[in-house]
Simulated assay, not measured.
Amino acid sequence: MKVIGVGDNVVDKYLYKRTMYPGGNALNFSVYAKQLGMESAYLGVFGSDRAAEHITKTLKNLEVDLSHCRYHDGENGYAQVDLVDGDRVFIGGNGGGVQKDHPIVLTDEDLEYIKTFEIAHSSIYSEMEAELHKLKEAGVKVSFDFSADYNDQILEKTCKHVDFSLLSCGQWKDEEVEELLKRVHSYGSNLAIGTMGSRGSMVYDGQTFYRQEPHFVQPVDTLGAGDSFFTAFILHYLKGKKEKTMKTEAELIKASLVEGAKFAAKTCLVDGAFGYGISF
Rank of each mutant, 00 (worst) to 15 (best):
S122E: 13
T195N: 13
G224I: 00
D12K: 07
E63S: 13
A41R: 02
A130R: 03
S198V: 02
S198F: 01
K141L: 15
F209Y: 01
G260L: 08
H161A: 13
S228L: 08
S67C: 14
E156P: 05
F233D: 11
Q153F: 10
F90W: 09
L36K: 09
T158H: 00
E127M: 11
D85R: 09
N25S: 15
V11S: 10
G77M: 11
A52M: 03
I154S: 03
L180T: 08
F233E: 10
H54A: 07
V98S: 08
M128V: 00
Y16T: 14
K141F: 07
V184Y: 08
E156A: 15
K2W: 00
Y14S: 10
K100W: 07
D65Q: 03
G93D: 04
K2V: 01
Y71F: 15
D163G: 09
T208Q: 14
D101T: 04
L135A: 13
K136H: 14
V98E: 03
S67K: 11
A232H: 09
K100H: 07
G139S: 05
C159A: 14
G7F: 10
D205Q: 04
F209D: 01
F146V: 09
E176L: 09
P214M: 10
D174E: 15
V98Y: 12
G194R: 03
K141I: 04
M202R: 06
E39S: 13
V270H: 14
L252E: 12
A130D: 13
D108C: 00
Y210R: 01
D12P: 02
V6W: 02
F216P: 06
H121C: 04
N9C: 03
Q171N: 14
V162E: 00
M20Q: 15
D87E: 15
F146L: 10
C159H: 02
S147L: 07
E129R: 01
M202C: 13
V98R: 12
S30D: 00
F274G: 02
S186T: 13
K266L: 15
F263L: 12
K134E: 03
Y14E: 04
Y42S: 06
E179L: 12
D65H: 01
L223M: 06
F29E: 00
D12A: 08
A33C: 00
A41K: 04
R211V: 08
G240K: 02
L27P: 00
Y113G: 00
S198C: 10
V89G: 03
V140D: 01
E213H: 09
D65N: 10
G139Y: 10
K244P: 07
S30Y: 06
Y78C: 02
S67M: 04
I154Y: 07
N28D: 04
V105G: 00
H54R: 08
K173Q: 15
